[in-house]
C-alpha cells in the first residue's frame, strides 16, 4: 500500500512537472489566438527562450535573470511574427513556419559561436524544488503540486490570473471583440492593432518563459533543437483546451501523464513501443477537433489580417 501511494505520488509529480511548460506556453498562445493571431511558430518562441535563458544563467549564474532573458527572447520572436502578420498582413502560418527555421538555425549558430565544437556540454545549475509550507504536507497532492519548482507555481498563478483576465476584465472582452469582429471593435473605438500586438507580446513572454523550463529546470544544458517539438505539443494543449486556461492545464496534464507513463513503462522493461504513448496526444487532438464541431468555434477572425481602409 505504502509503495503504491509512493508510486502514484511520483507519477503525479512527474505529470505536473511536464505539464508546466505546455500550460504556460499554451496560455500565451490562447491569448494570441483569442485576438485572431495564430502562431504556429510557438516552437521558435520556446527555442529562443530556452537558448537566451540558458546563456544568461550560464553567464550570471542567476536563474531569475535567465528566466527574464528567456521571456525577452520569446517576446522578440512573437513580436516579429506580430509585425509580419498584423502590419505586413502575411500568411500567419507561413510566417510561423519560417520563424521555426530561422530560430532553429540561429540558436545552433550562436551556441556554436559561443562555445565552439566541444565534447563537454556547458551546464548550469537547475532551479531548485521549493516546498510550500503546510500545503506540501498534504497527502499525495502535497508532494505532487506543492513541492515543485517555480515553473509549476507560475503555471498555477497563470491559470487563475489569465482566467480572470479573459472572463472578468474589460481587456478580456476587448481581446475577444478583436478576434471575433475586428471591424466592429475598431468602430467601437478599440485599437485593433494595439490589442493584437499586446497579445502577441504576451504570447512571446509566456512562450519564452516556458522555453526556459527546458534548459533551466529539466536539463541544465542547451543543445541543438532542445525543445524538440514541445511548441507543437503546446498547440495541441490549446486545441484540446479550447483556449481556456484551466482546460489547457488539464489537457497539458493529460499529455504530461502520457509522457510519464511512457517513461515508467520503459524503466519497467515492458516492450511497448514508446511511440504508442507519445502519439496519443496528437490523435486525441484530431478527435478533439472533430468532436468540437458546433461546440467551440474558432475566433471568427483567426488568421485573418485586418485592414482598416478596406470595405
Amino acid at each position: 500500500m505504502e509503495t503504491a501511494i509512493a508510486t502514484i505520488t511520483t507519477f503525479l509529480a512527474a505529470s505536473v512537472r511536464m505539464a508546466a511548460p505546455l500550460t504556460i506556453a499554451g496560455i500565451g498562445e490562447a491569448c494570441s489566438e483569442r485576438t485572431g493571431v495564430i502562431n504556429i511558430g510557438l516552437e521558435a518562441i520556446m527555442l529562443l527562450g530556452a537558448f537566451c535563458g540558458f546563456m544568461v544563467t550560464f553567464w550570471t549564474a542567476s536563474s531569475g535573470l535567465g528566466m527574464l532573458a528567456g521571456a525577452g527572447g520569446g517576446m522578440l520572436v512573437a513580436l516579429l511574427h506580430g509585425v509580419l502578420s498584423v502590419k505586413c498582413r502575411a500568411n500567419q502560418n507561413i510566417v510561423g513556419l519560417a520563424l521555426n527555421f530561422l530560430v532553429l538555425g540561429l540558436t545552433s549558430f550562436l551556441f556554436l559561436k559561443a562555445f565552439g565544437q566541444s565534447t563537454v556540454l556547458p551546464t548550469c545549475a537547475t532551479v531548485p524544488t521549493r516546498a510550500i509550507p503546510l500545503l506540501s504536507r498534504l497527502p499525495i497532492l502535497g508532494k505532487a503540486i506543492f513541492n515543485q519548482n517555480i515553473f509549476v507555481y507560475i503555471m498555477l498563478i497563470l491559470v487563475v490570473g489569465v482566467s480572470a483576465l479573459f472572463y472578468k476584465t474589460e481587456w478580456g472582452v476587448n481581446m475577444t471583440a478583436v478576434g471575433e469582429h475586428p471591424r466592429a471593435a475598431d468602430t467601437a473605438g478599440l485599437n485593433v492593432f494595439r490589442v493584437r500586438y499586446m497579445a502577441c507580446a504576451l504570447n512571446g513572454l509566456l512562450g519564452g518563459l516556458a522555453g526556459t523550463y527546458v534548459t533551466l529546470a529539466q536539463l541544465g544544458f542547451f543543445m541543438e533543437d532542445v525543445t524538440a517539438g514541445k511548441g507543437y505539443m503546446a498547440l495541441v494543449a490549446v486545441i484540446l483546451g479550447r483556449r481556456d486556461p484551466l482546460r489547457i492545464m488539464l489537457a497539458s496534464l493529460l499529455i504530461g501523464f502520457a509522457e510519464a507513463m511512457q517513461f515508467q513503462l520503459q524503466t519497467m522493461g515492458i516492450p511497448v513501443p514508446s511511440q504508442v504513448f507519445s502519439t496519443i496526444p496528437y490523435v486525441a487532438a484530431v478527435f478533439a477537433l472533430l468532436f468540437s464541431i458546433g461546440k467551440s468555434r474558432d475566433p471568427a477572425a483567426l488568421g485573418v489580417p485586418y485592414e482598416r481602409a478596406r470595405r
Binding site: 516579429l80 502590419k87 527555421f101 530561422l102 540561429l106 549558430f109
Partner: peptide, 22 residues
C-alpha cells in the same frame, strides 16, 4: 562555418518575401 547558416538564410528569405510589399 556552421551549416545552421542555411536554415537562418532560408528563414530570413521567406520572412523578407512575406514582408516585401510593406
Amino acid at each position: 562555418v556552421p551549416s545552421a547558416i542555411a536554415s537562418i538564410i532560408m528563414g530570413a528569405v521567406v520572412l523578407l518575401i512575406l514582408a516585401r510589399k510593406t
